[in-house]
Simulated assay, not measured.
Amino acid sequence: MNRKQMLLISTMALTLSLGGTTWIDPLRANPIANKQNTVPIKEDLLHVLGLSSEEDIYIAQYNGLSLADIAEANKVDVQKVIELQLAELTEQLNLRLSSGSITPEQYEAQRAELPEIIIKSVYAM
């Protein structure tokens, strides 16, 4: 498996493992029924990276660039990307904890792993 495929698979796996449970709840899955004014991760990430579409990220990653490479190419501090992803994934964990889909012990274990997972994802390690 080449680097591009590994990067895409690991990004999808991270997204599904941490965000997949939100689709179980129909209220969260339906954007019309959801009264919260939350912005999807991809829109925030697009804004931080200065990109116009999700496709731009996909193409860049397909061509072997990491999120860190994309940030550096657009003169963006990579730490902003890391902090954004950490905040978004922590929010998802908080929702999972408050909904009872994970235990406090699972929450703490997953929360402790987030920084390392995000850094590996951003730098495509």
Rank of each mutant, 00 (worst) to 15 (best):
residue 83 E to P: 00
residue 110 Q to R: 11
residue 2 N to T: 12
residue 117 I to E: 06
residue 122 V to Y: 02
residue 34 N to T: 13
residue 116 E to S: 14
residue 61 Q to A: 06
residue 13 A to F: 11
residue 21 T to F: 13
residue 118 I to D: 05
residue 20 G to Y: 08
residue 45 L to Q: 06
residue 21 T to L: 14
residue 115 P to I: 06
residue 84 L to N: 06
residue 121 S to N: 12
residue 81 V to K: 00
residue 63 N to F: 04
residue 89 L to F: 12
residue 95 L to N: 11
residue 78 V to S: 03
residue 107 Y to G: 01
residue 89 L to K: 09
residue 24 I to T: 12
residue 26 P to N: 09
residue 94 N to F: 02
residue 54 E to W: 10
residue 62 Y to D: 05
residue 100 G to F: 05
residue 25 D to I: 06
residue 1 M to R: 06
residue 6 M to K: 15
residue 88 E to T: 15
residue 26 P to Q: 10
residue 119 I to V: 15
residue 71 A to L: 01
residue 110 Q to G: 00
residue 24 I to W: 08
residue 22 T to I: 13
residue 106 Q to W: 02
residue 94 N to K: 12
residue 108 E to L: 07
residue 74 N to T: 09
residue 42 K to V: 15
residue 12 M to P: 00
residue 125 M to Y: 12
residue 8 L to D: 04
residue 20 G to R: 08
residue 33 A to Y: 05
residue 55 E to Q: 15
residue 25 D to Y: 09
residue 77 D to I: 03
residue 118 I to E: 03
residue 27 L to T: 15
residue 109 A to L: 08
residue 113 E to W: 08
residue 13 A to R: 12
residue 90 T to I: 01
residue 114 L to D: 06
residue 16 L to R: 11
residue 45 L to M: 14
residue 26 P to V: 11
residue 96 R to L: 08
residue 60 A to L: 05
residue 14 L to K: 07
residue 19 G to H: 02
residue 45 L to A: 07
residue 108 E to I: 01
residue 60 A to R: 10
residue 33 A to C: 06
residue 117 I to P: 00
residue 11 T to F: 09
residue 84 L to G: 03
residue 123 Y to C: 00
residue 73 A to H: 08
residue 37 N to C: 04
residue 78 V to L: 03
residue 42 K to C: 09
residue 37 N to G: 13
residue 116 E to H: 11
residue 49 L to H: 05
residue 55 E to H: 14
residue 74 N to E: 05
residue 1 M to G: 13
residue 112 A to P: 00
residue 106 Q to T: 11
residue 68 A to P: 02
residue 37 N to F: 10
residue 25 D to V: 08
residue 119 I to N: 12
residue 64 G to D: 09
residue 102 I to Q: 05
residue 28 R to W: 13
residue 6 M to T: 15
residue 23 W to T: 15
residue 101 S to R: 07
residue 56 D to Y: 04
residue 91 E to H: 14
residue 79 Q to Y: 04
residue 48 V to Q: 03
residue 32 I to T: 12
residue 100 G to Q: 04
residue 2 N to Y: 01
residue 5 Q to W: 09
residue 63 N to S: 13
residue 98 S to N: 11
residue 16 L to Q: 12
residue 34 N to S: 12
residue 62 Y to C: 03
